[in-house]
Design a protein around this nucleic acid. Sequence first.
DNA 1: CTAATAGTGTCTATTAGACAGTATGTT
DNA 2: AACATACTGTCTAATAGACACTATTAG
Lengths: 274, 274
Amino acid sequence: MEKVYKSEEEFLKDYDSSMYEKLSMTVDILIFSISSEEESNYRKTDKKKMSILMCKRDNYPFKDKWCLPGGFVDIKENLDDAPIRILKNETNIDNIYLEQLYTFGSVDRDPRMRVISTSYMALIDKNRLNNNLSKNAAWFDITFYEDKNNIIDIVLDNGNEKIKFKIEKILREKTTDRYSFKILENKDIAFDHPSVILSGMERLKNKLEYTDIVFNMMPELFTLGELQQVYEVILGKKLLDPAFRRIIANKVEKTKFMKTGGGHRPSYLFKYKK
Amino acid sequence: MEKVYKSEEEFLKDYDSSMYEKLSMTVDILIFSISSEEESNYRKTDKKKMSILMCKRDNYPFKDKWCLPGGFVDIKENLDDAPIRILKNETNIDNIYLEQLYTFGSVDRDPRMRVISTSYMALIDKNRLNNNLSKNAAWFDITFYEDKNNIIDIVLDNGNEKIKFKIEKILREKTTDRYSFKILENKDIAFDHPSVILSGMERLKNKLEYTDIVFNMMPELFTLGELQQVYEVILGKKLLDPAFRRIIANKVEKTKFMKTGGGHRPSYLFKYKK
DNA sequence: CTAATAGTGTCTATTAGACAGTATGTT
DNA sequence: AACATACTGTCTAATAGACACTATTAG
């Protein structure tokens, strides 16, 4: 029978924390940014892409595969502080938008030992980075196509290497919007990181509609055309100009600056209105 | 310098998993249901309340305080399976709606040792329970009031005991909807469970609007008035009848059954249309 | 009859979708 | 002049909010 203690001090002195077998905890960070691909036609504006940062693993397990930046949570570190520390090391930037995504804890997700991992999503404007990424890290442009059967094809492209995976969104409950992800094809990505990528993309899409989250990926000044392109690339569909402008009208503020030189009518630069 | 292995087998044989100090993982489950309070006036319909299940702690730490049901994640158990197992033990019901809420991992959240805890939200129709709760568990009706400064007063009432706490919602980022919770007053609830309760309430409110999640808390057959009351008690505001009926019109199906005996016009019973 | 809830009709205000039009830079 | 994008006007369709009205029961 369980002993009943008279005070908390007495209880804690006696407490044997090895009763349950312990495990390791990591965090994975899905960092989103926007990149521009230059057009050959001088008149066309640069095509925007969504991109994520990945690292090449240089040891087992999953040697030579790509994974999201991450690392172990220190025993004396708050969980939510771990991604901040890792981002600081990886990209040398503080003050990044970060939010917790989901905690993945399948028994077999790491062949070394039992590891549970909390994933985070970060949003940045890549241009503010001082290009000193660690040399095994690279930005991948991400394009996706979802068919009517909830099967999603993803292509990641870092300029040298194109990697693909296929994943199925499975509605977990008839009554809600929760999906779990079943990886159908994947050769190049480590751990369960394809699921993390999909979770983040879904979260980002949803939040675009009811928050101002997108401005974390934008430079200080931007044209409405650029902002619209970012929306379109995240949502995966074209938007109509007047509708878009109505929606974002009270989120942005016109400045006196203009962007010229595009071979077409110049546009005002806007900034985020808090 | 890190050794580079020739194969994954070789690497794993050599791997020392004690490199990082390990920790314990628990899950906490916030179980929502709806209860009815009988009215003295025979004509009035029962007043609906939102309620949650809590357990009284019979040992340190937090002896004699109330906490959410939960427990340690087994070293050989998938994270998402732990709340299923615990719910089965606690309420003897399978097949309950469950979703992961948030993972709390402050260093000092448990005085015994380092524990990180993933919280889950469960929704049930309390009337389907075979009233064999463990004897230290009780349902608490929950009422809340939020003022203009994002300070929320919560009262929990299990019939014998009324417990209160006060918590502040702090907007973590200007650009989004993420809050963290600062506990302002709390005498009776263990751990960081006030924050878990608030997270769940926020999640439930949001999902009410864009999913069919509410039907997990409803009996097979219900009147539209009852359904509307459940919406109202979760959202904390009155809804207009015609607007409500338009919104749920294509989620429900009229049956041939009616509810009579209320001293007023009888109403049709509806069921969830999948 | 009365109190109480059930259920509907309809007007108005707001928002979303669609399309066409005008404006203005660079080469 | 031609192209490409910037930006606006306006019609229509769909949705949300508000209020008033009718219906039907137990006591």
